[in-house]
Structures are given as C-alpha cells and as structure tokens.
C-alpha cells in the first residue's frame, strides 16, 4: 500500500494535463491546416509558415522582439548577478531588499505598465525600443535573480575559502571558482529573463512606439482584426521557442552542483 496514493488523484491529474496541453496542441495542428477556414481540415502544409517568413511586418516585429529580449535579459542578468552576490550574506535590511527585488513579480503588470507609460510621457521620453528595454529590464530582474540566488544558496562557501587558501585573491577566486560554479544559475536566469521578455505583451503594448511593434503586440492586433492561419503559425513558433528555452533553463537548474 502506497501511502502517497489517494483515490482519483491520478485521474484528476491526467485530466488536468489534458486541459493544459490540448488547446496548445489544437493550435499547433491548425497551424498546419492547408485550408483557410478553421472548420475544415484539408491536408497538412507548411504554407502558413512560409507566408509568415515572407511577411515584412512579422519579420520586423520578430527582430524587435529579439533585440528587446536580448538586451533586457542581458542587463537584468548582470544587475541580478551583482544583487545576488550582495545579498548572499545576511545584513540589516536584507529582507527589505529581497522584497524590493521581487516587487515586479507581485505587482499587477498592467498597473506597472501604465505607470511607466505615465512617467515616460511626462518626462518627454519617446516611446519605442529604448523605453521598452528599460521597462523590461526592470521586470526581468527577479526572473534572473531567483535562479542565481538559488544556485548561490546551494553552493558551499568552502570552495571559495579553498581558492583563497590556495593563493587566489578575491578577483581570481571569483573568476576561477565562483563564476564557473555559478554559471548554470546565471544561464538559467538569463534564459528565464529572455523568455519573460520575449513573451511579454502588456508592457510592450503600452510602451511600443510607432514602428517598434514586438511579436506579441503584432499577434494581439492581428487577432483583433480576425483569426487567420498566419496567426496560428506565428503563435506556434512562439510556443515552441518558449518551450525549448524553458526546458533548457530547467535542465541547467537540475545540473549537478
């Protein structure tokens, strides 16, 4: 008798998994449907994928999304790395600092987004890529911070003591021991920050200026204009990218310490 098994838990769990994955699978299947109307399945085709590849606005939006996610995730990871190193040891005010660092996770995104819009407009900062990068960097910080912090917490301080004992000064210790051991956490943090920024819709929606639409913003306005197979295809692409990146960061996190 297994104590951890309760009646019907398994059945409910499987139903929940179906609930979680069937919509996504349906979307993916439709993206390969040659027929323009969604109700009729004709045959499989890559037409819509070729079509989105050729679409200049989608290409521009994709490029914007990548630049935005790459820049914000890099900045957020660097900032978070420094913060994680600083909060490693206890000091008065550490709890407050940690709460501040997690703030973007707690606050409703729409509120922060419109507040940032308000700030930028009243300061005369023009909307667009620069504004989005700033805002994305801010909300990506906790996503980068948490995995790095988790890695640091799981890392015994004796490795660094050993390095200093073996004549490496503080900087060399950081370079030769701390950083290599921390690396999987940093990569996981970067990946999560990248995915978060890439997937973000709300903040970009308010802060994107003319000509700097990101992919999610493009998809939103396209949906508003009517469902098309192209949207299915581009959505599927976004899903696949996210899933790949998250799986990557998951495995980085599981990497043996």
């Amino acid at each position: 008798m297994n104590l951890r098994r309760f009646p019907v838990m398994r059945e409910i769990s499987i139903a929940v998994l179906v609930f979680l994955y069937v919509p996504v699978i349906v979307l993916t299947v439709y993206s390969f449907n040659a027929n323009r109307t969604a109700t009729v399945w004709t045959h499989a085709s890559f037409d819509w994928y070729l079509r989105i590849l050729a679409n200049p606005s989608i290409r521009a939006a994709t490029w914007n999304s990548i630049v935005l996610a790459g820049t914000s995730a890099t900045a957020a990871t660097l900032i978070a790395l420094l913060a994680a190193l600083a909060t490693r040891r206890a000091f008065p005010g550490r709890d407050t600092t940690e709460t501040l660092l997690r703030l973007p996770l707690i606050l409703p995104e729409i509120v922060v987004a419109v507040a940032t819009l308000l700030l930028f407009v009243s300061l005369g900062v023009s909307l667009g890529l620069g504004a989005m990068i700033a805002a994305h960097t801010a909300f990506c910080i906790p996503f980068a911070y948490l995995p790095i912090r988790a890695r640091l917490d799981g890392m015994s301080g004796s490795y660094e003591e050993a390095a200093q004992d073996l004549y490496a000064d503080r900087f060399r210790t950081f370079r030769r021991v701390t950083m290599p051991l921390l690396w999987p956490g940093v990569m996981a943090g970067f990946t999560l920050a990248f995915v978060t920024s890439l997937d973000d819709f709300l903040t970009s929606f308010f802060l994107s200026g003319p000509g700097t639409t990101t992919l999610p913003v493009y998809i939103f306005s396209a949906i508003r204009a009517g469902i098309t197979p192209e949207i299915n295809a581009i959505s599927t692409v976004m899903l696949v990218i996210s899933i790949l990146l998250v799986s990557l960061s998951f495995f980085l996190g599981q990497l043996r310490r």
């Binding site: 015994s156 004796s158 003591e161 050993a162 051991l181």
Partner: peptide, 8 residues
C-alpha cells in the same frame, strides 16, 4: 577541508 572542498 573537512568536506574536502575539491572544485567540482
């Protein structure tokens, strides 16, 4: 070190 602290 007691735990050896060999760099993994």
């Amino acid at each position: 070190f007691q735990s050896y602290a060999l760099f993994p």
